[in-house]
Amino acid sequence: MLLSVENLWVFYGPIEAIHDVSIQVDQGEIVSIVGHNGAGKSTLLKTISCLLKPTAGQIKYNDGVINGTDPDKVVSAGISHVPEGRQVFASLSVYDNLMAGAYSRGDADGVKRDIDMYCQRFPILGERLHQRAGYLSGGEQQMLAIARALMSRPKILLLDEPSLGLAPVVVNEVYRIIEEIRKDGTSILLVEQNANRALNVSDRAYVLASGQIELSGTGKEMAENDDVRKVYLGV
C-alpha cells in the first residue's frame, strides 16, 4: 500500500469537514474522489499534504505515519500536490515556478535535465520559459502547475480539480497527460467534480458526500452505478 488514509476526521473550528474517511492508493493506480462542491475533497487532499491537521485518524505513506509532520517533509517523502485553481506563482517566470517545484531536490544537474524534459513535453512552457506565469492562459497554467509538482519527482501526485474552468479540448489534453504520468510509474489521487472524466481514467473511485465516503468501487463500476449516474453524472 502506497498511501492509506485511516478513519480520518477533520474539523475547521467547530465545523466538521471530514467524517471518518478511509481511502487507499496502491502503487501505479489512478484513484479518484468525486463529489459535489463542499463535500470535503480539497480538505482531504490538504490534510494529506499536512497543510491541515486532522482531529483523529492516521495517514500512512509507505507504512510510515505522516500526519503531524510539516508540509515540506511530505514533499520530500514523495507526495506532491497540485492545488485547486492551479496557484502558479503569477509574478515569477515559468522557469522560477519549475525551480520552486524542485526546492526539495539537491541535484542541480538532474533538475536542469528535468526542466529541459518538461519543456519538450509541454512545448508552451519551453516557449514561455522566461515569461511571467501570470501571462499564461488557464490551460497553460494547469500544465505548468502539473509540471511544477512533478519537478519534485513524486511517487504520488495529488490533483485537485485539474479540469476546473478549462475548455473541453484543454480538459482532454489534461487527461491525456494524467494517463501519461501514470505510465511513467507515478500514482495519482484525483479529486474532481467532473465525475465523468475522472471515473473513465480511474482504476478505483470513491464518492465523497458531506465529508463521508458514500460509495466506492472500480472506476468502471462507479461509472455504471445508477445512483452515481443520477447524482453525479447528471444522466
Binding site: 499534504s49 508540509p71 515540506d72 506563482f89 509574478s91 520552486a100
Partner: peptide, 22 residues
Amino acid sequence: GRATQCIVENMEAAQLMGIPLN
C-alpha cells in the same frame, strides 16, 4: 531568495513546493 518570493506570493502553494516556512 526564490523561496522567499514564493512565500510572499502564495504561502500555501509555497508549502506545497516543499519550501519550509519555519
